[in-house]
Amino acid sequence: MEVSMTVNGRAVSADVEPRTLLVHFLRENLRLTGTHVGCETGYCGACTVHVDGKAVKSCTMLAVQAEGADVKTIESLASNGNLHPVQEGFWERHGLQCGFCTPGMIMASVALLDENNNPSEDEIRHGIEGNLCRCTGYHNIVRAVEYAGAKMRGEEPPPPDWEGGE
């Protein structure tokens, strides 16, 4: 059936089966492969994208459910070669090891900081509760989100742990 939505600011439409998942529509129809397919059962959050401004798991949503929606993927974050503060945070604070969970972690973190750009460590950990990192890199992911929050507030980020910061 016909489905139309806006993805990263671009109007798109396609003829899809009702069972087509949003993540497959993004990856296979639109070739936006930044969004990853992880666990496939809604646990891992690697497929996190924004639908109408809210973080959702695109492996647990049908493409047809996104009819008329405004969808944003990891590809929408950087502009003109400048990283989004959260992407910069993951880079600067080494918030990834293998990188598989990273697109979902970043999209969940962006949604978290959009609602509250000064979260406590506890709020960050709960905010990314729906995203699993099997390298267990959570410590630096939290630091990356703190870095991004500081940048978004126009403040100097705390120094990295390895330079004696806390």
Partner: peptide, 9 residues
């Protein structure tokens, strides 16, 4: 219930 993404949908 669930996590942030689950609660959003």
């Amino acid at each position: 219930t669930g996590d942030v993404q689950v609660r959003n949908r």
